[in-house]
């Protein structure tokens, strides 16, 4: 009994401490975004890594998502004889939900894990200590370019995902099933409003922040993780944790944002 109470207390303290540490980390990084110098070169490098290198996977994922929406939409709407809604069904579900969420999950898998592993390896090989000892602040030097790049990249990748999805839906519905091209696009134009696009953008912005926050913080605090692992095994464990945590956080915050904005 006493053990159980003790354990509960210990767990709670650990999680509260951990959450506090991560929050302080986030705030310090965000504040440092606005301090000089602005590392343009490093930001471009990170934009290349997080943004540009994700384009291919976003295009592929976006097109297939759109195609499957077109396909499913066609079979469902056909039963109710409302095939002219297919354009708006595809566009709305992409812009409001699937675009931001799927694009973010793709980036978690591609860039989030890599960022976490990179920072984790830098921690285990004392590269972060070396930075500190050179008088270079690791938040400013390492984290801030990643934060800026992720916050810029995610909304843009989401837009790309949406457009590819709409084209994919066009391919499935219009080219494969012969839905009227005009009704596909016209239904879309008349039903999508700016508020939908705005919602998608807000979501992708928040998701970008979540991805880069979880990845960098998990890697940076690798040595404080409870599993106590260091070295290669620690990096792999922490990367898995970061991917799981950011995916769950993305889906959870997706619900929260939808509930607040609707």
């Amino acid at each position: 009994m006493r053990n159980f109470v003790e354990k509960t207390g210990r767990e709670t303290i650990y999680y509260v401490e951990h959450a506090g540490m991560m929050t302080i980390f986030l705030c310090s990084c965000l504040i440092r975004i606005f301090t000089r110098p602005f590392q343009l070169r490093a930001i471009i490098k990170q934009l290349h890594f997080i943004g540009a290198k994700s384009v291919f996977i976003i295009i592929v994922a976006g097109s297939f998502t759109g195609m499957v929406l077109g396909l499913q939409g066609y079979y469902v709407l056909q039963r109710f004889g409302s095939l002219d809604m297919i354009g708006s069904a595809v566009a709305l579900s992409l812009i409001r939900e699937l675009g931001p969420v799927l694009a973010a999950l793709m980036v978690v898998g591609r860039a989030g894990s890599a960022i976490c592993a990179e920072i984790g390896i830098m921690r285990t090989t004392e590269q972060i200590d070396a930075l500190e000892c050179m008088g270079i602040h690791p938040y400013k030097y390492l984290m801030v370019p990643k934060f800026i790049a992720a916050i810029i990249s995610l909304p843009l990748l989401t837009c790309l995902f949406d457009v590819m999805g709409i084209l994919g839906g066009y391919f499935a519905a219009v080219v494969l099933f012969g839905v009227n091209e005009g009704s596909y696009f016209q239904g879309m134009y008349s039903s999508v409003v700016w508020a939908d696009i705005e919602m998608g953008l807000i979501k992708s912005f928040v998701f970008g922040l979540i991805i880069v926050w979880v990845a960098t913080a998990k890697g940076f605090f690798l040595h404080l993780d409870r599993s106590g692992a260091f070295g290669a095994e620690g990096v792999s464990r922490i990367t898995t944790k970061a991917v799981v945590l950011s995916s769950v956080a993305i889906l959870g915050s997706d619900y929260l944002i939808s509930a607040i904005l609707l």
């Binding site: 830098m122 090989t125 004392e126 590269q127 200590d129 070396a130 500190e132 000892c133 008088g135 270079i136």
Partner: peptide, 26 residues
């Protein structure tokens, strides 16, 4: 720390930069 130089056990060179860029960083 600008008056202190540290050489770590494993070198702690940044893998994404050339040796020259590493030495030049400070």
């Amino acid at each position: 720390r600008r008056n202190m130089g540290v050489a770590f056990q494993g070198g702690a060179l940044f893998g994404s930069m050339t040796v020259g860029e590493n030495v030049e960083l400070p």
